[in-house]
Design a protein around this nucleic acid. Structure first.
Lengths: 209, 209, 209, 209
DNA sequence: AATGAATGAGATTTCATTCAT
DNA sequence: GATGAATGAAATCTCATTCAT
């Protein structure tokens, strides 16, 4: 009995996972508005109506895709950062992870980058829609720890989060639109370098501002 | 005669301007997809069909809105930066201008920030769609000048552009979604500070990296 | 099981047939351009969208109506002509059939006669659009057989087809426009007589018919 | 003064003629429904609104095109047939004229052949719409004269008209759709031959019917 | 008479969602 | 749970016609 239920559950959640996967891929490739529920259903090999057994509606499906991806990312981060001691290193590793993930999952990246901002409509309909919030909080925490540990100087951690994420986000946008001819790794190093040392040359450091 | 012609032209371009203005406002408030042509026509006090005398279709209207705003911004920049000598100051002033403009034209900001990325469909349909290109080039040029003048150290100007714009863009996104409770000026100063001096405190400078 | 499937199929094809029937009627009564999809849907008692489950679009629906009618006509001809031996009689019976069919299915006749030529647009969009082709070929075959059997003299069968069909077609056009006050049967006999004996020959007059 | 009025009139009627000419060409090439008033206006080098100074509306313009063409044809017939004595020759010459005209004025032919039947809508709106009526009457008169003169045997002249016109009409239709690869002259001879001598060979004459 | 900018009614088609099976 | 046929609301865009100039 218990076995059966579990089997059913896993069967059920497999179908759910299939749907999310199919949705991420299709949303990323065609964009939210051009994606038909029937596209996703076909890719997941279920009937159209089945989608509505697992998700409330198309909006909900998109939101669940975001949650899925970002949760996934944060779990990966948990694993990878666990072994690292230095808070600054943790922060830099988080950045690497984000870039790696986007590089390897172009579809997911496209969703996070482009569709995330898609929808003033979403903000209207779901006033608290800002699926990236937890993810940003995660980064903010890392920033705080690095500051508290004295590994970076005292700056507003929220602001720092915004700058880091914004820089990465826009870099990746450019990368996506450039059809990936840009080297994301080089960008990552450049961003780290500039944020790290600032824009002023070492020798000029004392004289300016 | 000349008067009459001019009068006709100006009447015509006034209607065009009215339509663009109405479109920017409506697109910003409801989002591109939820905006009906008839919404815009009503706001501009013309018949629906009239929109199509001035713009090819809804897509074209959105693109023309982008062009209008960004051209406007760059013209304003030209005026303001003319009087400034120091290239670094020019760059910082450009940032200020961007922030000021967004602060004063929330609708335009929303369009630039949110709808600009909206549309994988746009990228598919119009392969060269990236209306912000000229604007980014403008900023890159300022970066280059500041570097050449030795006012900031030798970094890749394209990368710097990406970081600056990405930081601002995401800050403004947060500001828009926070319903403007954040202080954009504070953010601007923070961004300038971090980019300027980097994340490493003076005292720590020797020890790290 | 088999029953169920059949039931589904027949239910499906019944709806399709309903739609075609409704379309033929409406197209004939109002003309293609003045017919709205919603007119047809209403007459077939389905929702507008349902039409698009069975036909690609309005054009396709019209084409399918033609195919349906002409196939129907040729099947009827197959049945009726089977029992007839004499090739000339076959040909004459085919003519009768055509006239009978038009007389009994005024709507279908109207479509075949009037809407069939309606659409330079159709010829442009679908370069092979000439739905009556098979039907004319059918008649040509009968002509050939009558010639080969020596029942009518050696004339170009394609030309003969054109003359027969053209005569009938225009007679029926006149009949349709005259609101059916003309006697189609009398016309049929007249056509047969003239084609048969030609226009000359007072001297032959007495011997024949 | 008189001069001025005449000049005005001719100027006016020139514009009218230009419009009709432009309309015939455009209707023939694109079909009635796909032709925009602005297409015609542009081709006639006048403003859209000007069309409405000469014609009531688009329907009226089409009707006037028919009238223009058919009147033209009948005038040409008057001239050509005047010199001919034999009523049968007159009839055959009329056929030739019709075919020549269509061959030389493909656009006009297309209009007469295809667009003439265009419009159940027309028959609904204008119950007496049958622009070809006078033209058919002309042919009927010729038929009658040939019969009365004993040049062809006693048949119903209306029916004969229908057969002749129907045969020609459908031949020309096929010719138009075949993109003119068919030889109209051969067709004309074939039609004349069959109508003339009938379908029954001399030798078979006695055996049949 | 001539213009052509403006009008606005009108219809096809799409597709998220439902619900009977 | 699963299906997929059916629904029907919704919105872009066209173009004949008008009318102020």
């Amino acid at each position: 009995m218990a076995y059966e239920i579990e089997s059913l559950n896993s069967k059920k959640s497999k179908k759910r996972a299939d749907l999310t996967k199919a949705a991420i891929k299709t949303f990323a490739q065609k964009g939210f508005h051009r994606t038909k529920i029937s596209d996703i259903a076909k890719k997941a090999k279920v009937a159209d109506g089945t989608v509505y057994l697992y998700f409330e509606n198309k909006d909900d499906l998109l939101i669940k895709c975001f949650e899925e991806m970002l949760t996934d990312l944060m779990e990966k981060a948990d694993q990878r950062l666990q072994a690292i001691e230095d808070p600054l290193e943790k922060m830099l590793n988080f950045i690497d992870l984000h870039i790696d993930y986007c590089e390897k999952n172009r579809d997911a990246a496209k969703l996070i980058i482009i569709e995330l901002r898609q929808s003033p409509e979403f903000y209207e309909k779901y006033p608290d829609f800002w699926p990236i919030k937890n993810y940003l909080n995660y980064l903010t925490k890392l920033c705080k720890e690095a500051i508290d540990a004295g590994r970076i100087r005292e700056v507003d951690p929220d602001l720092l989060t915004t700058i880091i994420f914004g820089s990465l986000d826009f870099s990746i946008t450019a990368w996506l639109l450039s059809k990936s001819t840009i080297d994301l790794k080089r960008i990552r190093n450049g961003v780290a370098d500039i944020l790290h040392k600032g824009l002023i040359g070492d020798t000029n450091n004392e004289k300016n501002d």
